[in-house]
Design a protein around this nucleic acid. Structure first.
Length: 558
RNA sequence: GCCCUUGUAGCUCAAUGGAUAGAGCAUCUCCCUUCUAAGGAGGAGAUAUAAGUUCGAUUCUUAUCAAGGGCACCA
C-alpha cells in the first residue's frame, strides 16, 4: 500500500489528493504549527535530504497555506500496476485483521413473515461488510439470526388450525404467502373478537412447554419459510457459515434453553432490578439509557433476553474479537442498551460490539407493515429487476440475472446506509450512470479491448524496447493510474469503517476515469500501447476485485 | 416531553477539519466510417437558518426550523 509506505517513512499521515495539481499524496502537518508556511519550509529541507523518501518521490512542493505535496516516482506507480496484474484476485487485500475473528449477523428474516426489501438491505450490506473484513484478513463467521421464536407463533399456529390447510400450504409455490395471509386474517379477526388472542397465547405456551403438535407446526413454518429464503439467498448469491445450523443460521429458538443462565448471571452480578409492576429490568448508571426489560411480569422472556443469550453463547464458544449486528437503525437505542449491558456484565468492550443500522425503506405515506399487508415482497423486486435488465437488450438469462442483481445490490451499497429510502422502483433498480451495470459494463469493455488486442497484436512488437519510465503519459493515463494504485487503501478504509459505500465511490470514480480515457484515446495502436493495455488489465482486475467484495458478479461480456 | 438520525443542484445521492463542494437523473449542445453508445465531452444549476470554535467548517458546538425513527412487558 503506497499510502502506508509513505507514512512509515514520513512519520505522519498523508492523504491521497483528488487534484493532480497537488501531487499524489499530501500532508497537512505543517498547518497545525505556527507559522505553517515556515514549518513547511523547514520540513521540506529535511525531506529533501531523506534518501529513502527520495527513492519514492519525484517532487515535493509546498502549496497554499502550507500543504506539503508529494509526487510519486513514475516507476513506483507503474510498479504498482505490475503488482495488480500479477497478484490478480489477491490485489487490494491487507492483513490488518490477521488472527482476529468477527461474527457478522445479517439478513435475519422472520419465519412465516415476508422477506421484504427491508431484509434485503440487511442481507446486502451485511454480506458486503463481511466480505470487506475478510479482505482485511479477518476470519469471519456469518450468522443469520432468524426470528423463529416469539408470541407471533401462537397467532400463527392458531390461524393455521382455525382457517388453514396444511396440504395446500405445502403445495403452494410460496408457502410464506399463505402463512402471511393467515397471519393478517388473525389480526382482522382479533379486532372483531379479542378473545382469540387468548387462544394464540395458549398455543405459544404449548410451544414453549414442548407440546408435540405445536412443535410440529412450528417446524413446518420454518421449513416452509426456507422454500422462499433458499431461493432468495441463492439468487442474491449470499450465504452463511456452515457452523451455524448448516448455513441456515442460529435462530432465536436455539437460545430458548440458554436464557436461564443469562438471567442467573445478571442476578448474580446485581444488574437485575424489579420494576414497578414486577418485571425485571437492567437499569443503567446515571440513567444513560432507559431501562432494558429482561423478564416480563408474567415471567416470560423477551427479545433482549434471547439476544444476550446469543452473545453469551458466541463468546463462550468462539470468543470473537468483534460482533456486528446489521439490523435496521430503528433499533439503535435497543442495541446501545444491549451493548451497555454486555459491558456491565464484563463480556465485551465498546469497540467489540457494532451495530450497523440501515434506514427504513418506506412508502411516501409511511412505514411498511406486515400486519396491514402493505409490504413489498422480495419476489416482486427480483421479478421487476429481471424485467428491467431484460429490456436493456441482453438475451442470456445468466447475464440478465447478473445485471439485475448487480443493479439492486449496488444501489443499496453506494449510499450511506443509515438514511431512509423512499421506495421507488427507478431508485432501487437504477441501471445507468452511477450503477452496478455501469461498473459491470466497464469490466466487460476492458475484456473486450484485451481480447481484441490479443487477436490483432501478432505483428511481433518488441516489448523490451518499451520503457514506461521515459515515456510521456497523458493526463488521462496518469489519472487512471493514480486512481488505480489507491485500491488497497480504499479497502482498508472501507473495511475499518464498515462502509461499503466508500468502495462504491472509488470504483465508480475509477470506471469513470477509465471510460473517459477510453473515449479520448485509442488504446490499441498509437503510443504507449503496452502501457495502455496493462492499464486496461489493471482497471479490469481492480473493478472485478472490488465488485466481488460488494457481492456483485462480473459478466465477461455484455 | 426526552433521546437518536437526517436536511447539499428541480429530483436522488457523494464529499469522515483542508485547496476550485463531486456525480447520476432531468434539461441544453456535441461525439458511433474509432477497440462495447448500458458509453464519452461540454453548458446551466446546491451546503435549511443563525451564532460560535478554527489559519481553514458541508463536516465540530449551540440554538431555531423541517423530516424520519425510538422511549419498559412487540421484535
Amino acid at each position: 500500500m503506497l499510502k502506508s509506505e509513505l507514512e512509515k517513512i514520513l512519520g505522519y499521515e498523508v492523504e491521497a489528493t483528488e487534484n493532480s495539481d497537488f501531487g499524489d499524496y499530501s500532508s497537512n502537518v505543517a498547518l497545525s504549527h505556527k507559522p505553517p508556511r515556515e514549518f513547511a519550509e523547514m520540513e521540506l529541507v529535511k525531506l529533501k535530504a531523506n534518501k529513502k523518501l527520495n527513492e519514492f518521490v519525484d517532487k515535493i512542493e509546498i502549496a497554499g497555506p502550507g500543504f506539503i505535496n508529494f509526487w510519486l516516482k513514475r516507476d513506483v506507480l507503474v510498479g504498482n500496476l505490475t503488482q495488480i496484474v500479477e497478484e490478480k484476485e489477491k490485489y487490494g487485500t491487507n492483513d490488518t485483521g490477521k488472527g482476529k475473528l468477527a461474527i457478522v449477523e445479517y439478513s435475519s428474516p422472520n419465519i412465516a413473515k415476508p422477506f421484504t426489501v427491508g431484509h434485503l438491505r440487511s442481507t446486502i450490506i451485511g454480506d458486503a461488510v463481511a466480505n470487506l473484513l475478510t479482505a482485511s484478513g479477518w476470519k469471519v463467521m456469518r450468522d443469520n439470526h432468524l426470528g423463529d421464536w416469539g408470541t407471533q407463533f401462537g397467532k400463527q399456529i392458531y390461524a393455521i388450525k382455525a382457517w388453514g390447510n396444511e396440504e395446500e400450504i405445502a403445495k403452494s409455490e410460496n408457502p410464506v404467502k399463505e402463512l402471511v395471509a393467515l397471519y393478517v386474517k388473525f389480526h382482522e379477526e382479533a379486532e372483531k373478537d379479542p378473545s382469540i388472542e387468548d387462544g394464540a397465547r395458549a398455543w405459544f405456551k404449548k410451544l414453549e412447554d414442548g407440546d408435540q403438535e405445536a412443535k410440529r407446526l412450528w417446524q413446518k413454518c420454518i421449513d416452509w419459510s426456507f422454500v422462499e429464503f433458499d431461493k432468495i439467498y441463492s439468487t442474491l448469491n449470499v450465504s452463511f457459515s456452515d457452523e451455524f445450523e448448516g448455513g441456515r443460521g442460529l435462530g432465536e429458538s436455539f437460545f430458548e434453553s440458554r436464557m436461564g443462565i443469562v438471567i442467573d448471571e445478571l442476578t448474580k452480578k446485581r444488574l437485575l432490578k424489579v420494576g414497578k409492576e414486577g418485571a425485571k429490568l437492567v437499569f443503567f448508571p446515571k440513567d444513560k439509557y432507559p431501562a432494558l426489560m429482561i423478564v416480563k411480569k408474567d415471567g416470560a422472556t423477551l427479545y433482549a433476553t434471547r439476544d444476550l443469550a446469543t452473545d453469551k453463547y458466541r463468546k463462550e464458544k468462539y470468543d470473537p474479537d468483534l460482533i456486528i449486528n446489521e439490523v435496521g437503525s430503528e433499533q439503535a437505542l435497543y442495541f446501545r442498551q444491549i451493548y451497555e449491558t454486555e459491558k456491565l456484565l464484563g463480556w465485551f468492550k465498546d469497540e467489540q460490539r457494532v451495530h450497523i443500522g440501515h434506514g427504513l425503506i418506506r412508502f411516501k405515506e409511511g412505514k411498511m407493515s406486515t400486519r396491514k399487508g402493505n409490504v413489498i415482497w422480495m419476489e416482486e423486486v427480483l421479478n421487476e429487476a429481471l424485467s428491467r435488465a431484460k429490456k436493456l437488450g441482453s438475451d442470456s438469462e445468466k447475464l440478465i440475472k447478473e445485471v439485475a442483481i448487480g443493479a439492486l445490490k449496488y444501489n443499496d451499497l453506494k449510499r450511506d446506509s443509515k438514511t431512509d429510502i423512499v421506495f421507488d422502483w427507478d431508485e432501487i433498480l437504477n441501471m445507468e450512470g452511477n450503477s452496478g451495470p455501469y461498473l459491470q459494463y466497464t469490466v466487460a469493455r476492458t475484456n473486450s479491448v484485451l481480447s481484441k488486442a490479443r487477436s490483432t497484436m501478432h505483428d511481433a512488437r518488441d516489448v523490451s524496447d518499451f520503457d514506461i519510465r521515459t515515456s510521456n503519459l497523458n493526463d488521462e493515463e496518469l489519472g487512471v493510474l493514480r486512481t488505480l494504485v489507491r485500491f488497497p487503501e480504499v479497502i482498508a478504509t472501507a473495511s475499518k469503517n464498515y462502509s461499503p459505500n466508500l468502495l462504491c465511490n472509488y470504483l465508480y470514480d475509477l470506471a469513470q476515469k477509465y471510460n473517459g480515457f477510453y473515449n479520448a484515446h485509442k488504446i490499441i495502436g498509437g503510443e504507449n500501447e503496452e502501457f495502455k493495455l496493462e492499464l486496461t488489465k489493471g482497471v479490469g482486475q481492480v473493478l472485478k476485485n472490488g465488485l466481488k467484495l460488494l457481492g456483485i458478479q462480473t459478466p465477461e461480456k455484455m
